[in-house]
Design a protein around this nucleic acid. Structure first.
Ligand SMILES: [Zn+2]
Ligand SMILES: [Zn+2]
Ligand SMILES: [Zn+2]
Ligand SMILES: [Zn+2]
Lengths: 484, 484
DNA sequence: AAATTAGGTCACAAGGTCAC
DNA sequence: GTGACCTTGTGACCTAATTT
């Protein structure tokens, strides 16, 4: 296995590459982040589990594609290598329209969100310092035609364009963006023009140059992002349009990001022999705030004008991060959940997140929610109604319901890489049995409470699926569009 | 250097990239050149247009124009590329004014019928999932530079139904002049001549009021489905609101449509003038399994699991009209349903229709579905699995399950105008009680069968909501697209 | 030398534009 | 509405510099 084999000689059909079935690859799993290069050479001497030691296939740690070597410090594929280099060189900044936790682990998925891909590159340990930015002493390509007229060697224009570009995920929408021209010299045959992406902001030394393309530049002015900062300094705030609304986004420099990321992962980071940390910091949980330096307050003020966020939904998603953590704790306080494999726990939890949020929120703010639900949409109204009928009084019982939700056996199928299915099924059955026992008494309508609970499960499932199918807004709250 | 020159006159074929094998006519990769077109090229000496003689001429598989590359998975020209993108983005639905088998294979002919062109795009293998759908919240107007003059004060939903012909009635057969622009009005604010369109519905958003838009019919927004046909006969037209839009659906049964679409071309089943269809490439429709590699070199982008249209889904929706009727009959054979107000029956039934379809189909074709489900998506797989575990043996029991679904109390909230809520609740409770009694025995996993049934209810609910959130294709089958 | 990994190249295929 | 023509980002492949 050598680079050359991977490249030129071996007629490995690239089409045989499969996307790994894993979601986020166990970011705590050292097997995926070999601490030393010796581990890369998978010989018979490998003491490590030979999980994916398929012949000489090395996985990109960002996207699971075939790695072509260690690039900028990380085992990575050509795509991620190029992506990282391009955007570090450009000093590009992206924003995520979701939650800064898009799943980009996958050959197809990596294109969904540039921001999250870049984050993942950095988290995996790619070191921007190994990239020469805008090297003035650039080596001249052999075939350089050297166009005689190269008027402005370093023109950084800020152009605006509302074009989405990376479209492999139909659900992922990108809004407008501000852009600067490449700091690299222009390519021989190509023209520079506004770049559509979710790139936010780039160079500091930008000088607004004359519009390059007359026919298109007029168009590009009409909408899109505009910087409120002065042109000579780093704009601190970007107005960005997405989904027809204006977002105000604080910008952060790459170095700031780096500092943040590396601070979180590896304090002893140095530029020289850069190696990825053996284990990455826990991947930011959804809605986690640590990786979200943007001014949420600002954004939120803009959010308000937004349309139909159901009132109950809003309550449920208020402090949803903390609520999530509380839910998780609650689940983990029960051995039938905590005994599961940690990876399985996370995946189960992830799938049931919305349901748990609802249940927890409901019992946390019963009165408020009941009152609010009266004016809510019907699905929610009925759900709250059913929850009410269950007449649960203790947190122990609430816990049971949450366990029933999180351990739903049928949901296993929706999860890609469960390690111990059997154990989950056991737990699930235990919980169901427990519920039958605990809620044997007859409740509202002459029905057993256990049945009422099961009915609630149906409704939770419905809302869960509903929200899953919604786009998320920037706070991770589902955008409940008009429904039939 | 023009765009085309890139293809035609590229002087330096610097590598052996796939498509640079233009010198090798078409035999190099038979996958890309179905026999029909290859034959066309090979025998170009005679009747074929001389244009194809160019060795590097690549044909659009939809219309035979010059292809400019592989677009959305298919070798296509700029026109078909744009056509497909536009209309997928808009979520446009077309209807054919002829027999759904118009010949669109030809540069001139491709404009004859949008519906058939779109069909052909799909059949050729164009994949809608590779298009970023419009964010429904906003559609930018074409020319935003003239915002000053916007007199219309009412941006409310302008439902536009330029429907010249709602139901496809072969007997009535439009004359050849029937498909005409007279029947339609121009829909955009441009002052161009009215464009012919057989688009059924557009997703032009309400926020942008176009003065020139005209509403053909003011359809109330909250009515749900309503038949405009006579009550005595099979309703020929259904107005249905789905995803916030009005659909006008011919209630031709799925089987009829399918049969027509798939076989009309081969058989002489159309009355009247029937034009021979252009031969389609033997490429799979995107409705069918998408595992097929597009191009060996780039399969990675299309890799596995485009579970777009699930096989089980197809079975469930095969003959869905008849199945629906059967379900309804089954429900009505039980007094606890038949005693309800007829309007209420209809509404309940409509809301539970997908679930009933699944249950009925499952017990109708148990073996087939079980087998098919093995390769199905996970949600479906688990549902079928759970249904299996319930171990229902008699149609009486199936009826119970269907009643449980159709009478779900909590679904009442989703229904607008229920007349006798109390009666429904009573019935529901009865059914639940009955189920508890009937399924008291212990089944799989040591759980009571009644609980297993309730679990199935959850899963049904999930699928139901999933499908509800899907767009419907022209046959009323949910388009199960990939989600973010 | 061989292996590795920077940076560079450019076909490709996304989406937008706007005269028609 | 259509489609020729424009833009972009992407990544498979390349070359050269550096290390082993
Ligand atoms: Zn990668
Ligand atoms: Zn993201
Ligand atoms: Zn074409
Ligand atoms: Zn037609």
């Amino acid at each position: 296995m050598s680079y050359f084999h991977l490249y030129g000689c071996l007629p490995i059909p690239r089409d045989l590459r499969m996307e790994s079935s894993a979601l986020i690859p166990n970011l705590g799993d050292p097997r995926n982040f070999p601490p030393t290069s010796s581990a890369l050479v998978n010989f018979s001497s490998n003491s490590a589990p030979s999980r994916e030691n398929q012949s000489n296939f090395r996985q990109c740690q960002i996207c699971s594609d075939q790695a072509t070597g260690r690039h900028f410090g990380v085992l990575a594929c050509e795509g991620c290598k190029g992506f990282f280099r391009r955007n570090i060189q450009k000093n590009a900044r992206f924003i995520c329209f979701y939650n800064n936790n898009c799943d980009v682990y996958g050959i197809k998925k990596r294109k969904c969100c540039q921001k999250c891909r870049m984050d993942r590159c950095l988290q995996a340990g790619m070191n921007p310092a190994q990239i020469k930015k805008n090297n003035p002493t650039r080596k001249k390509p052999r075939n350089e035609k050297t166009p005689a007229s190269n008027p402005t060697p370093n023109p950084a224009t800020v152009t605006l364009n509302p074009v989405p570009r990376l479209s492999f995920d139909p659900a992922a929408g990108f809004g407008s963006s501000a852009r600067h021209t490449d700091l690299l010299l222009a390519r021989n045959n190509r023209t520079q023009s506004p770049s559509p992406s979710n790139e936010v902001e780039t160079s500091y030394e930008s000088t607004i140059s004359s519009p390059s393309k007359r026919s298109y530049s007029a168009v590009s002015q009409k909408t899109g992002a505009s910087s409120t900062g002065t042109a000579s300094t780093r704009p601190s705030v970007i107005r960005k349009e997405h989904n027809g609304r204006i977002w105000i986004i604080d910008t952060e420099t790459s170095s700031e990001i780096l500092e943040r990321v590396h601070h979180a992962s590896d304090l002893g980071l140095n530029r020289g022999a850069h190696r990825p940390p053996a284990s990455l910091p826990p991947r930011k949980c959804w809605l986690s705030s640590w990786n979200q330096p943007q001014r949420m307050a600002d954004v939120k003020t803009e959010i308000r004008e937004r349309e139909t966020a159901d009132e109950v939904t809003k309550i449920v998603f208020k402090n949803s991060y903390e609520t999530s953590m509380a839910c998780k704790e609650l689940c983990q306080s029960c051995p039938c959940f905590s005994r599961l494999d940690e990876n399985d726990q996370n995946q189960l939890f992830e799938k049931a997140r919305y349901e748990l949020l609802i249940v927890y929120s409901y019992y946390q703010n019963k009165m408020t929610i009941k009152k609010t639900a009266e004016n809510s949409n019907n699905m929610m109204k009925q759900l709250i109604n059913s929850l009410d009928k269950c007449d649960i009084k203790t947190w122990e019982d609430v816990k049971l319901i949450m366990l029933l939700s999180v351990l739903s056996r049928d949901r296993l199928g929706k999860i890609n890489a469960i390690r111990d299915v059997k154990l989950i099924e056991e737990s699930s059955n235990e919980v169901v049995a427990q519920i039958e026992e605990q809620f044997a008494e007859v409740g509202e309508g002459g029905l057993k409470k256990s049945i009422l609970v099961m009915i609630v499960m149906s409704q939770l499932r419905e809302v869960n699926e509903f929200w899953n199918r919604c786009d998320l807004d920037i706070n991770g709250v589902p955008n409940e569009e008009e429904q039939h």
